[in-house]
C-alpha cells in the first residue's frame, strides 16, 4: 500500500513559524544582552554578532516563506530575496569586524 504524505495544516504551519520566530527573537535579545539595563557599551563580541545575524537571517527566511508565501513562488525569486537579506546581514557583520574587530 503506497503511503500518501499528508499536507500540513496551514494554520499549524503559521503557528509553528510564529513560535520559531519568537524563539529566535528571544535568542537575539539574550545574545545582544537586551535584558541588561543601565547603558552598557561593552562589546558583545564577533561571535554574538554572528549569532545575531544568523538568527536575523533565519527569521527573515521564515517570514518570506510562510507569511509572505514565497514557499509557493519560483525558486529564483526565493533565492533572490534570501540573497538580498544575506547581503545586508553580511554587510553588518563585515562592518563590525572592521570597526571593532573579531
Amino acid at each position: 500500500m503506497s503511503h500518501i504524505p499528508r499536507k500540513p495544516n496551514p494554520v499549524f504551519r503559521l503557528l509553528l513559524t510564529w513560535a520559531l520566530m519568537s524563539g529566535l527573537t528571544i535568542i537575539s535579545m539574550l545574545s545582544g544582552d537586551a535584558l541588561e539595563t543601565g547603558g552598557v557599551t561593552a562589546s558583545i563580541g564577533f561571535t554574538s554578532v554572528g549569532i545575531l545575524m544568523i538568527t536575523t537571517l533565519f527569521k527573515c527566511r521564515l517570514l518570506l516563506l510562510d507569511f509572505l508565501e514565497l514557499r509557493h513562488a519560483s525558486p529564483e525569486w526565493r533565492r533572490g530575496f534570501f540573497f538580498a537579506i544575506f547581503l545586508i546581514t553580511a554587510m553588518i557583520a563585515a562592518t563590525y569586524a572592521l570597526a571593532i574587530g573579531f
Binding site: S28, A34, L52, T55, T56, C60, L63, I85, I92
Partner: peptide
C-alpha cells in the same frame, strides 16, 4: 504588513544590539 515586519526584523538587531 509583512514587508513592514521584515524591515523591523533587520533594523532591531542592527540599531539596538550590535556593539
Amino acid at each position: 504588513w509583512h514587508m513592514v515586519d521584515l524591515i523591523w526584523l533587520i533594523l532591531y538587531p542592527v540599531l539596538y544590539l550590535v556593539r
